[in-house]
């Protein structure tokens, strides 16, 4: 992957000056390349990675496996995009294996998610079945461990 994207993917807040230093190129070039990535839709947004378990939110997340019939035109894309437009759906993927779509759905309560599945999702044309799992605890998100134990065991000066 592009070196600049790699850095942004681990720290999107890195200053343009620092990025320029790390990649040994002018700041103007960094600005230009980032603007290019944004324009081309390679970079789709910048978000903080939260440890939500620490916030005690009224929020549940369900992981839903969905089987669908692909449409005659548009295959899986038409139905997947239709489902993705619901704001309750935070992520949606086309999968290989025993089901077709994997959804991450968020709601305030179990009930809210359940009613989304039964009233919104299941009735859609082309949905064959769904299987809903609720998430209990997060250990790692986007490559970041939720537990912070950043102790440096090293001696402070060594040869």
């Amino acid at each position: 992957m592009d070196e600049l994207l790699k850095i942004l993917q681990t720290n999107a807040l890195e200053s343009r000056e620092n990025l320029a230093r790390m990649l040994a190129c002018p700041v103007a070039e960094i600005n230009e390349r980032i603007a290019g990535f944004e324009k081309d839709g390679v970079i789709r947004g910048y978000q903080a990675i939260l440890n939500e378990d620490k916030l005690g939110l009224d929020k549940v997340t369900a992981v839903i496996e969905v089987k669908v019939t692909p449409q005659r035109e548009g295959g899986f894309d038409t139905i997947a995009e239709r489902i993705s437009r619901f704001p309750e759906v935070s992520s949606a993927y086309l999968m290989s294996g025993t089901y077709d779509l994997l959804l991450f759905v968020e709601g305030r309560t179990l009930r809210e998610v359940a009613s989304f599945v039964s009233e919104r999702l299941s009735p859609l044309e082309g949905i064959l079945s769904t299987s809903t799992h609720f998430m209990l605890k997060t250990y790692k998100r986007f490559g970041v461990l939720m537990r912070q134990d950043k102790s440096d065991e090293r001696l402070s000066v060594s040869p």
Binding site: D152, R154, L155, S156, V157, S158, P159
Partner: peptide, 26 residues
Amino acid sequence: RSGIRDFFDIVTTMKDVISLGIGEPD
């Protein structure tokens, strides 16, 4: 004794030091 060793002894008595003195991967 290694000069590094002497230096290490001083650093360990201090707080909030950023060490660029470590010859092993972080």
